[in-house]
Amino acid sequence: MSIVERKQEKIKGLVKQQKIGMMFGRAIGKRRKNLVDRLLVVVASRLSPPSDPAKSFMRDDICDAEPEFSLEELETYRGQRDG
């Protein structure tokens, strides 16, 4: 099989996969899900690998810290303008 033929075969397979994948994607992209969306999300989560091997590079100390500012801190900070 030539390189071009291999790619065409791969594309054909992906096109079929994508029809299903986009259906899941559309459901996941919804915040307010109907019954069908919820079912699709459940199926998608079952089909997904149990743990994300990529997770380690997707978080770091800054993101994990999730800093939250208190209202008092922000008020004092903002007040530097008016003071």
Binding site: G25, I28, G29, R31, M58, R59, I62, C63, E66, P67, F69, L74, Y77, R78, G79, Q80, R81
Partner: peptide, 23 residues
């Protein structure tokens, strides 16, 4: 949302200090 999870950087995380900035 699983489609967007972890798509955040320090500029977004510290944005509240921009919204409330004295200047």
């Amino acid at each position: 949302n699983p489609l967007f999870r972890d798509n955040i950087c320090m500029k977004g995380i510290y944005a509240p200090k921009g919204f409330a900035h004295p200047d």
